[in-house]
Design a protein around this nucleic acid. Structure first.
Lengths: 163, 163
DNA sequence: TTAATTTATGTAGGAAACTACGTAGTTTTG
DNA sequence: CAAAACTACGTAGTTTCCTACATAAATTAA
């Protein structure tokens, strides 16, 4: 609480969230480097998803990781260039591209297991406090699913709350 | 917990943080609009800071809001174009620009008080759960200040934890 | 079975932050 | 007090996501 933004409290929450996301992503990058692994934090959602689900279309991946599909496409381009994934046309639906991990991709996933394990421990240290950050995120997202920020604002306004 | 990324848990925490930040910022924009006020969520840190501190240099603002100074400069450019702030050279230090709210900026801050009040209530609804999101952020940031993500990762690695 | 709609993918460009680097004042130091 | 170091500001370009729009294949409906 040593600066104005901290004091402004919850109003700057999206700023705070983004700052934290940024910090963790950047340090995550350094951790992969420190393990001598060529991998970028932003690739994690796609690669982890393909590791579990084997073969998916572009839009399926996008939905799974909660990204817009153009963002997913550009990640897939990078991963294809790195030969971590490859894709082939779906025989039964010519529109679809089925994405799979390459052998190199699978080897990478294996090699990253200890890194992910390590990161998980470090992140748990950071996020598990009186209030657990991951749980707080999940809870907030659930609230938002029930009724969004705008909707809540309007309900509060209509309830005669003009102070 | 209905998709792979949710299940991957804490490893995707920076993704989750960013997604939430994005969602709140976008809805925040809609709330300002619904109140008929021309204001962007990203301006909040600068404007709120100037509201409290009256007159500050570019770098002082950047430090206060926790942004890199070039980010601050581009926000200040927008705010100057909107005539919400203005700046003048510091007489005693020719390098510095002192930034202040214009009368229009001050009027805007007044007009936004009920909006900020409303948002604060809506955000509290969203963020206050079994785990309070804002407190969780603060606690995690404090942990990071003591020892960063990378540093913790390395300590965990050195402590013979090779599982 | 053609026309309308929906779905899957792709491209282009935008938003909100960042880093790297350069210039010009200010302060410190030898 | 001149040289070196530091500080303030600015520009350029990058990163990681996004939205808007286009096209083509598949499905649904008339």
């Amino acid at each position: 609480m040593d600066n104005v933004i901290d004091q402004s409290g919850i109003l700057a929450i999206s700023t705070r969230l983004q700052r934290l996301a940024d910090a963790l992503r950047k340090e995550g990058q350094l951790i992969y480097q420190s393990f001598g692994i060529e991998f970028e934090p932003k690739w994690f959602p796609v690669v982890y998803t393909l590791h579990l689900k084997t073969s998916m279309s572009v839009v399926e991946i996008a939905n799974e990781i909660g990204y817009a599909h153009p963002s997913t496409i550009s990640l897939l381009k990078e991963l294809e260039k790195q030969q971590i994934i490859k894709s082939k046309k779906d025989k039964t639906d010519e529109r679809k591209r089925l994405i799979v991990l390459t052998p190199k991709g699978k080897a990478l996933v294996s090699a990253m297991q200890p890194v992910w394990n390590n990161m998980q421990k470090a992140l748990s240290q950071i996020a598990d406090n009186k209030n657990n950050l991951m749980d707080a995120i999940i809870e907030a997202e659930e609230k938002l699913k029930v009724s969004g920020f705008l909707e809540r604002s309007q309900k509060i306004r209509l309830s005669g709350d003009v102070r």
